[in-house]
């Protein structure tokens, strides 16, 4: 069985499993849409400015994707690990790759689904605007900026217990989301925070996504910063998977 065939197999059944619990999917759809509706739409200075409104959609999209990756698939991996079916799957003749690829594709699929209402609200209730070409490109960029966070999420999921994973994800997610300019645009940051912000994967991903949507150029180091974190987090995920031996009790 090739890795590709096995990855397709794992993806198919993971999507099926997720779809069988529709509430989880609806939760994914709701959060970024509500944030857009309550925090962006009422602010006329943002909602009424095409560039700022589009950037706001980009920022929240980045946050949605990040949080899907880290919660659904970081915490999700930790929870699965506690189920007896998980060690069983690890005895099947498949290495970590098909499982991981399956999770990444499944995560990507549901992250995209979560973006649909966000984009609709941006389009209907704000001045946000984007050309079809930029929009298509942005769909690809979203996948790219999501991958490092999936690696981080999975790394956490495979190295901690489910309860610890939730805490760790929260402790990491919100500070780097804030410092990455996903809640407030980095243009209003003081210089010191802006410098810290630029080495964060959240900021790099945000700027690349906003650049794709609006044409406002990202800072020069954004792509190398994102790639660097991507390599690091992927290595972390693989390391955590390899050393994992299921639940641990003392």
């Amino acid at each position: 069985m090739s890795t590709l065939q096995l990855a397709a197999l794992h993806t198919k059944y993971q999507v099926l499993e997720t779809l069988r619990v529709p509430v989880a999917v609806i939760g994914n759809l709701m959060f970024p849409a509500l944030a857009m509706f309550f925090f962006v739409v009422p602010q006329q200075s943002v909602a009424g400015n095409p560039i700022a409104a589009t950037a706001a959609v980009g920022q929240l999209a980045m946050f949605a994707v990040m949080s899907t990756c880290m919660f659904t698939f970081g915490v999700g991996a930790a929870e699965d690990r506690a189920l007896p079916f998980d060690p069983y799957v690890r005895t099947l003749p498949a290495g970590p790759a098909p499982r991981m690829i399956g999770r990444m594709l499944t995560g990507g699929f549901f992250a995209f689904l979560g973006l649909v209402p966000l984009v609709l609200i941006g389009w209907l209730f704000t001045e946000a605007t984007v050309t079809p070409g930029r929009f298509g490109l942005a769909l690809l960029v979203v996948v790219g900026v999501a991958l490092p966070f999936l690696g981080l999420g999975l790394g956490i999921g495979y190295s901690t217990s489910a309860k610890a994973a939730i805490a760790v994800v929260q402790v990491i997610l919100f500070p780097i989301a804030f410092a990455g300019g996903l809640f407030m645009p980095p243009q209003i940051f003081p210089d010191w925070l802006d410098s810290i912000s630029q080495v964060l994967p959240s900021r790099a991903g945000r700027d690349l996504l906003v650049e794709t949507l609006t044409g406002v150029e990202a800072y020069a180091a954004a792509l190398p910063v994102l790639l660097g974190w991507g390599v690091l987090f992927t290595a972390f995920a693989l390391w955590a998977y390899r050393r994992d031996e299921g639940r641990r009790f003392r």
């Binding site: 069985m1 065939q5 096995l6 197999l9 059944y13 099926l16 499993e17 069988r20 619990v21 189920l83 007896p84 079916f85 060690p87 069983y88 005895t91 099947l92 003749p93 498949a94």
Partner: peptide, 24 residues
């Protein structure tokens, strides 16, 4: 091998779980 404690993915059907494992 078998899963322990009869731990099977609760939302998948018998046929689906079988096909999933067979696919390996």
């Amino acid at each position: 091998t078998t899963p322990q404690e009869t731990g099977l993915p609760a939302t998948l059907t018998v046929g689906e779980v079988t096909d999933f494992v067979a696919g390996h």
